[in-house]
Design a protein around this nucleic acid. Structure first.
Lengths: 189, 189
DNA sequence: TCGGCATGTGTACGCTTGTACGTATGATGC
DNA sequence: GCATCATACGTACAAGCGTACACATGCCGA
């Protein structure tokens, strides 16, 4: 109907491309981290993945679908690291150190992950599907903590971690690993 | 140049309107809370304030300026409540109770304030001007806590509060005031 | 009283957006 | 070989955007 004029202009070399959908989701995460959900568009994602615009509507029914899949992937990736680090801890003391390392290295170390997380919280506050993603993520973190701490402690510690990361990331002077350690040990003492 | 055709259509009754700028900023906060920064537009704000579109460009140089002023106002309002409640506390125990009440009533009680805060964090992660607003707000909260607690405790407690509010607000089962009290007292014990 | 000018209003413009869709292509089963 | 069809591509379109700006209005100082 609206059709297309064949146009002999520049041809793209890439045709067969399995896994393109996956790369588009990763590209979406990159765009969200760099420009924010507000400025994340089909065109921007396509550009980041070096793929034509038409590819977006072929692989995803809507922009919302792309965002949902991207945030799900982000939450899974962060939760997996959390799981692994805590699973490797032999006892409660080691678990406390794992938490400290997690906050210092992974959470505070990656601006990208921090931005993606906060973007997810905002989106989750408004979209029930994304709220479910966030809740599943938090539940998984708590379960990981419950390997070493009782449920109440796990929940409170999880919240403390969140607050430490958030305040530190937005602060003029970020917390040092020693300050993180102090706060965690004070809470667990 | 682009001009306007006079058009005798519907006239608005409202002309002289001091304080309109203020109302626009409040309307902006309402729109941000309801639809998110991503969907906050000149037209949407104007509609919320029942004011013509042209009024936006008269009072503000750009949409960014509106957002910055709106977030500044939000942060000030929340910080003021924080200040007042803590200033009214006579001793350390009363201060702890004030914190618990703050979290339970004000922070967890108002979905609007929660959403606005998270939206600000996202915006602050990308815009230096808004980061300054956020940092001033956090500094003020900390100073309020330092009326009753040493600086390290104040900083850590501030982070704990943030984490409790965030996790609770996004959770399927929000924390009860008793659970908040438990967490705060555990930390301050 | 009255004129100047700050304030308020309506609309046009250029641009970007999400999405739809006709066409091209090449991997795969026969 | 070759027909089929999932996949890939390019482009059109309506809607909505931020912003600019010509014109209207009425407050206030002289």
């Amino acid at each position: 109907m609206t059709g297309a004029t064949p146009s002999p202009g520049r041809r793209r070399p890439r045709r067969h491309d399995p896994g393109r959908r996956d790369r588009l989701i990763d590209a979406a995460l990159t765009v969200i981290a760099e420009r924010g959900v507000a400025r994340t568009t089909h065109r921007e994602i396509a550009r980041a993945a070096d793929v034509p615009l038409g590819s977006m509507t072929y692989h995803f029914a809507s922009l919302e679908e792309v965002l949902a899949e991207a945030f799900t992937r982000h939450a899974d990736a962060v939760a997996r690291v959390f799981d692994e680090r805590l699973a490797a801890a032999a006892d409660r003391d080691a678990a406390a150190e794992a938490v400290i390392a997690l906050v210092s290295d992974d959470l505070l170390g990656s601006r990208r992950d921090f931005v993606l997380s906060v973007e997810l919280y905002v989106a989750a506050a408004r979209d029930p599907a994304l709220r479910a993603v966030t809740q599943a993520w938090m539940a998984r973190s708590r379960r990981a903590l419950e390997r070493h701490f009782d449920p109440t402690t796990a929940r409170e510690l999880d919240a403390l971690i969140e607050g430490l990361v958030l305040h530190s990331a937005l602060s003029t002077d970020p917390m040092t690993p020693e300050q993180i350690r102090h706060a965690v040990h004070r809470f667990l003492r």
